[in-house]
């Protein structure tokens, strides 16, 4: 079972948003100094999904990431967690990529690898929330794609993918090779042990640049970010409804809301 997991490096989404600023001119989000990059949480879940399959059925997990100045410790965590191979698609031009360009770079690298059974991606990235790379990549590789998986069961040359839908779950059977995008319900990435992290630091990693991949980013970019602006400041006022008993408080709350025209 040959699996490829695509992960994106993003600024830690759990860090404080207070210090985050939008550079309107540069059309960039500026996070406070001292905010580390992390693997995007859904991508971590995608890796966990791959490792779960490997736990049961064995196999080989390749982790792949695209970007400029990719942080080694962030991505080596994937190796420490149990991935077998790390391929960094790294180039100074791989900056501020749109989903199509990213998917194209990944596709080029995956074609170089040749054979695979299953590609796993996070359902969407924590910074852009676009959710397009997975399905785009499947399209470019001409393979089926199932999105927002909360469970994956490996069968004979196929997988059964459980998806979350608004009124429950659906299970889809899909032939391999295929691409599945993963949601957080599949589980958080296992904690790597310190000794595994130290071992991962010594493991070789593969780095491929634009030239080696035959990629010209400029020709791949399809989207143009027209403007980026900070959210409007909202004035929130909190009014505490107090009363002797919860029942009376509830009544007061309802009356207050009706009075304000909210219900």
């Amino acid at each position: 079972m040959k699996m490829i997991v695509c992960v994106k490096q993003v600024p830690d989404p759990q860090a404080s948003s207070t210090g985050t600023k939008v550079d309107v001119a540069a059309k960039r989000v500026i996070v406070p100094h001292g905010t580390p990059p992390v693997m995007s949480p859904y991508d971590e879940s995608a890796l966990e999904a791959a490792l779960k399959i490997k736990d049961v059925h064995g196999g080989h997990v390749t982790v792949m990431s695209v970007g400029k100045n990719l942080a080694r410790p962030v991505l080596r965590k994937a190796l420490a967690s149990g991935a077998d191979e790390l391929i960094l698609l790294e180039d100074n031009t791989f900056d501020q990529l749109d989903s199509y360009a990213t998917a194209s770079i990944l596709a080029a690298a995956i074609r170089e690898i040749g054979t695979f059974d299953l590609i796993l991606c996070g359902r969407q990235a924590a910074d852009t929330d676009a959710g397009q790379v997975g399905s785009g990549l499947a399209e470019l590789l001409h393979i089926p794609c199932v999105t927002v998986a909360c469970g994956i069961e490996l069968g004979e040359e196929k997988v059964n993918v459980t998806r979350i839908v608004s009124d429950g779950y659906e299970v889809i059977e899909v032939m391999l090779p295929a691409l599945v995008t993963v949601s957080s319900e599949i589980g958080e990435l296992r904690y790597p042990k310190l000794k595994d992290l130290q071992a991962a630091q010594k493991m070789p990693i593969v780095v491929r640049n634009a030239g080696q991949l035959g990629i010209d980013v400029a020709s791949l970019m399809k989207l143009n970010l027209v403007s980026l602006s900070p959210p409007q400041h909202r004035n929130v006022q909190c009014c505490m409804i107090s009363a002797e008993t919860p029942e009376i408080a509830g009544e007061h709350l309802a009356l207050t809301m009706r009075g304000a025209g909210l219900i």
């Binding site: 490096q9 996070v31 100094h33 001292g34 905010t35 580390p36 990059p37 100045n69 990719l70 942080a71 080694r72 410790p73 962030v74 080596r76 965590k77 420490a80 904690y191 790597p192 042990k193 310190l194 992290l197 130290q198 991962a200 630091q201």
Partner: peptide, 12 residues
């Protein structure tokens, strides 16, 4: 830290 250049032992 901004660049992710931290000691790997920070991760756990």
């Amino acid at each position: 830290i901004d660049n992710g250049c931290f000691p790997i032992q920070d991760i756990p």
